[in-house]
Design a protein around this nucleic acid. Structure first.
Lengths: 226, 226
DNA sequence: CGCCTATTTGAAAACCGTCAAAGTATGTGG
DNA sequence: CCACATACTTTGACGGTTTTCAAATAGGCG
């Protein structure tokens, strides 16, 4: 019996939205489902890439460790989003580790199977190209930010980026925010503390709420030169 | 009369290596050629994306400006490499500016034409996916580096990355190196000066030669803790 | 209730950016 | 062929941002 919830996620997923019911069923047949508890690892940086994945339910954190031991969070992914794709499309080891941030269900599709599927479904190939293009754009934006902006700007932009995806209430700790913006917990705290005083954000343990996105956007633009 | 030099570049290009002669001719017919003097701009950040490009001859520098006015060099591209693709595949304005770093010939293919070409040539679509995957991997690596490492490590890794692509002699100024590593000219100079004293690199105006990649790799790993 | 994690605060120092300035190669025009 | 302009290189001093280290508090989960 087909799993309709699974098909629904596939259908809603940006990459597969162009498929009809038959094609979705075909794709669905290729996929295996895996379930994880919070904080389990789906794969580790350096693992051989057999599968790429799509989140059905829950949340995935993709992280990479610097030589100093410090970690950097490359991205979070939620339902309908794919991850682990860089490794698969390049046939090299996973460049980062994927860890669940909640109880999570994911669909895995074997590399070779997906590649032949793509060969027969050019629209999906083009969708995949679009998704990768978008990720590349995001990555380049963040590169520029990390290279040229102050921590305050980086944090403001990180918050805005997350909020664009997840809405005004963000389920992240300061630690995670710091790891996404490329700074330390303490500095992240000091800055967010100021933002709280200025009533731009609010925060409780593990959650950050954006109160005034406009002011945050101004902050992200640059130092208050006037 | 077909331009054989052009076809040769297309053939050598990673994305189109799977095409046969007829398909290459078909693709070549879609392309227009543009020629530039050094330091001219092919497109500016924010321009509408009509074309994506492939370098035939010369060198392209892709840069992006931070709100502080500081610029960041996202990438350099040489013969056979494509650029401007992020904008085209996402149908959003170019996310960065492209400037020639030498007398340069490029091929431009119109967005819509390329997308239909992809639809009929799944192998090219998959090649495109591979190239994008590789770029995404590189971008994520650099993200991690910029976020967590000291300038010395960032410079060391930038040099290694460039050298992996271009060989031991790199045609860059300290200014450009600084803009790629996300630091200032002065700091870049101070660090490279040390590297020169330790005989890890050599440099003359506008050129940097890597003498000892192993030592550089050690430096890139992290601070000399032992 | 106790442990673990997240939050919060403080002080000192390191790192790096900024400003200022001078020297030096490269190429251009006279 | 030389003078000059330009851009790249080089050096020094200072100050600010951010990291680092240390420690105390508080909230949530078992």
């Amino acid at each position: 019996m087909p799993d309709t919830a699974r098909d629904k996620i596939l259908k809603q997923s940006l990459i597969f939205s162009s498929l009809n019911a038959d094609e979705l069923a075909e794709l669905s047949a290729l996929a295996i489902e895996r379930r994880f508890q919070p904080d389990e690892f789906v794969f580790w940086e350096g693992d051989a890439p057999d599968y790429f994945y799509i989140v059905v339910e829950g949340r995935i954190k993709v992280r990479k460790y610097a030589s100093s031991g410090k970690e950097f969070i490359i991205a979070f992914f939620g339902p309908g989003e794919m991850f682990g794709e860089v490794a698969v499309f390049e046939n090299k080891p996973y460049p980062a580790s994927a860890q669940t941030a909640a109880a999570t269900r994911i669909l895995g599709i074997q590399k070779d199977k997906y590649l032949s599927f793509l060969a027969n479904h050019p629209r999906v190939a083009i969708s995949t190209i679009n998704v990768l293009g978008g990720r590349l754009r995001d990555a380049q934006n963040r590169l520029k930010d990390l290279a040229g902006e102050r921590v305050e700007q980086r944090l403001a932009r990180t918050l805005l980026m997350l909020s664009a995806k997840l809405g005004p209430t963000l389920p992240f700790t300061r630690q995670e925010l710091a790891d996404m913006a490329g700074t330390t917990t303490e500095t992240a705290f000091r800055i967010t503390s100021q933002l709280k005083e200025r009533e731009i954000i609010r925060s409780v343990r593990g959650k950050i709420t954006i109160l005034d996105a406009d002011k945050l956007r101004l902050l992200g633009e640059g130092p208050p030169q006037v």
